[in-house]
Design a protein around this nucleic acid. Structure first.
Length: 195
DNA sequence: CAATAGATCATCT
DNA sequence: GATGATCTATTGC
């Protein structure tokens, strides 16, 4: 049991009030915290909104995308393929629907709970190395859609110690439009980054 | 090891 | 009624 705190101050709202691709880069290395579970963000993708056909908000304001058009620093959780949930963080100011998809995490604390929720996973690095996996591992569900990430049960925090890392860039994964836009960011060499 | 099929449902046409 | 920001198990070299 390690009782030492693994993370520091909660990121304030202005952190998110910037272009989606800037926030996506800045989130790498930060610590996502939900109740007793904490994990380092090692892979993100930026979705730009009205100009980005791959983004949910591309078509405009609908009941589902309402959160994306709201204030920055909130969670957007949606169901994909009828089975898995994906976690996004809303970026950019009110009315500007940029967001950042969290694609992979490196477990930091509460790993026992993650293993329970994930079932027959062998290695720790496989607990949260994908968008659908990390929501299960962290216990994030659609009940958290619209939640304020600057205070409450789900937050993103500064790491206690920031090791140096290189940021890798590539096209986004699993989408059908704008396949060549380099909006995926990850910590180069980290074993928890998805393939 | 790489490729592929199947699971399963909220959202939008 | 079709589609999708996925994962896992299974099949085929």
């Amino acid at each position: 049991m390690n009782s030492r705190k693994q993370y520091g101050a909660v990121l304030p709202r202005p952190f998110y009030d910037r272009p989606a691709e800037v926030v996506a880069r800045a989130l790498l290395g930060k610590i996502l915290v939900h109740r007793d579970a904490a994990a380092r963000i090692v892979e993100t993708e930026a979705y730009l909104g009205l100009t980005d056909r791959a983004a949910h908000a591309w078509r405009g304001l609908t009941p589902r995308t309402k959160v994306l058009f709201g204030a920055p620093g909130h969670a957007y959780v949606y169901l994909i393929y009828g089975m898995y949930e994906c976690l996004n963080l809303v970026a950019e100011g009110e009315g500007s629907p940029g967001c950042v998809l969290i694609r992979a995490l490196e477990p930091v604390a509460g790993i026992d709970g993650m293993r329970e929720r994930r079932g027959a996973v062998k290695r720790d690095r496989d607990l949260a190395n994908g968008p659908g996996k990390l929501t299960i591992a962290m216990g994030v569900t659609r009940a958290l859609n619209g939640a304020d990430v600057t205070r409450g049960v789900l937050t993103v925090c500064e790491p206690v110690s920031q090791e140096e890392f290189e940021i890798g860039v590539s096209p986004r994964i699993g989408i059908q439009h704008n396949v060549d836009w380099p909006l995926r960011f990850f910590i180069a060499g980290n074993p928890c980054v998805s393939r």
